[in-house]
């Protein structure tokens, strides 16, 4: 096989700090010793592939997929769309994106969520799709509500959609959250604040995209995702002993 080169090392300055006392659960769940660094190898440079045959026709339509098309979910209808790129600016085609979210009232369909806001009988809250040849993806969903969580006395999560992406290798694996332009709770959220670099946090805030919205149907938000790239040079393959 052609060696496509190792993954570009993660710049951890761009990422959240693991230990952040205002996000209380991180206190006992963050490693206290440094990570072990090394150039990536085959275990990180390979990854699972997924076929279109595994993805159902409604899997990226959260308004309809819980009821298999029988009845639509309640809430603000939105299109969430964007591109998946790598650090070199190349599109990442045919990669799996999975999302999950609360309903319009901020309630999750999970056996452990006991928030008093009701479930929507027509909303499940999970979706998935593969990017196309240009790295583009889209989901039709409803805008999730903010919800309270037991952290500090009166903490509320901003409206957000959780996103999981594979890229083309296990070392690119990423889970993140998309926030919505203009939500005043972003400034108050200790989970958002784990990202110390404000310009990096801004990259998780999706702008309203009127050009992609459909009149009399849905508004749109654009959310691009950047995954790690690979370092290619003509001096790539180091000989043993050099």
């Amino acid at each position: 096989m052609i060696d496509q080169g190792p993954l570009i090392p993660r710049n951890r300055e761009m990422h959240p700090v693991p230990y952040y006392p205002d996000y209380k659960t991180s206190v006992a769940r963050s490693p206290s010793l440094p990570l072990l660094s090394m150039e990536s190898g085959p275990s990180e440079e390979t990854g699972p592939t997924f076929g279109h045959d595994q993805i159902g026709a409604l899997d990226n339509n959260l308004i309809l997929n819980w009821t298999k098309g029988a009845a639509p979910a309640v809430g603000e209808r939105i299109l969430m769309h964007g591109r998946v790129l790598d650090e070199n600016g190349r599109a990442v085609p045919e990669t799996l994106i999975e999302i999950w979210q609360a309903n319009a009232g901020g309630r999750y369909r999970h056996k452990k969520d006991g928030y008093l806001a009701p479930l929507d009988p027509n909303f499940g809250g999970c979706g998935r799709t593969l990017t196309d040849a240009n790295g583009c993806y889209q989901f039709l969903t409803i805008r999730p509500g903010a919800y309270p969580w037991p952290n500090r006395g009166n903490d509320w999560r901003p409206m957000h959609i959780h996103i999981s992406v594979y890229g083309h290798s296990f070392g690119q694996r990423l889970i993140t959250q998309m926030y919505f332009e203009g939500d005043p709770l972003i400034e108050r959220c200790p989970i958002a604040a784990t990202i110390r670099n404000r310009s990096q946090l801004d990259r998780l805030v999706a702008p309203l995209d009127m050009a992609a919205s459909r009149p009399l149907d849905f508004l749109a938000y654009k959310f691009d995702i950047v995954l790690r790239g690979r370092r290619q040079t003509m001096f790539e393959n180091k000989l043993e002993g050099l």
Binding site: P16, L174, I191, L227
Partner: peptide, 25 residues
Amino acid sequence: VLPESPSQTAGPYVHIGLMPTYAGN
């Protein structure tokens, strides 16, 4: 070079998205 998108926690309900049966769905 574009910077990688920053990570965020998967949260307590990650199973809804990745393991729906485990989440009760």
